[in-house]
């Protein structure tokens, strides 16, 4: 697959930041990847086009859902270094608090990494890590290598 091979370094590891800049929808959301050791955090800085409710104001729930799902995929790419993008089978989102007009962060944990299917859990928060605004979990199909 061209997309992944283009961002694979000499050490065979994927450059996740470079990957995100090549995905138009990730650019549209304004998402970027921050790596600290083996921890990956996705950051979605606030911008006006992410708003779903102008009265509150609050982020559009869909942008938070998309960030969660995207974070899960990035975590899978980082941990399993596959040859193609994982495909989402299903994804479930619990909305816990309204998203304020500020930066949103998300981190994922792979609960089970099978041969063909992985289960990934994700959490998103804003200024306070212990007060998540949404959590999600989903199943992803992995290409058998």
């Amino acid at each position: 697959m061209k997309l992944l091979s283009e961002v694979r370094g000499d050490d065979e590891r994927l450059d996740l930041s470079a990957l995100v800049t090549r995905i138009p929808y990730a650019q549209f959301l304004g998402v970027r990847v921050e790596e600290r050791g083996n921890e990956i955090t996705l950051v979605m800085p606030f911008k006006e086009s992410l708003i779903g409710n102008v009265m509150l104001p609050a982020l559009h729930g869909g942008t938070i859902g998309a960030l969660l799902e995207f974070t899960a995929v990035i975590q899978l790419l980082a941990e399993s270094q596959p040859s193609s993008l994982p495909k989402t089978i299903d994804f479930a989102i619990d909305y816990l608090r309204s998203g304020r007009p500020e930066a949103t962060y998300a981190r994922a944990t792979i609960a089970k990494h099978g041969r063909r299917v992985a289960n990934v859990q994700v959490e998103a928060w804003q200024s306070v890590r212990s007060k998540p605004i949404a959590s999600g979990h989903g199943h992803f199909m992995l290409k058998e290598s």
Binding site: Y25, G65, A66, E69
Partner: peptide, 8 residues
């Protein structure tokens, strides 16, 4: 299109 578009 991205799955996140469907989500939103």
């Amino acid at each position: 299109i991205h799955g996140g578009v469907l989500t939103a």
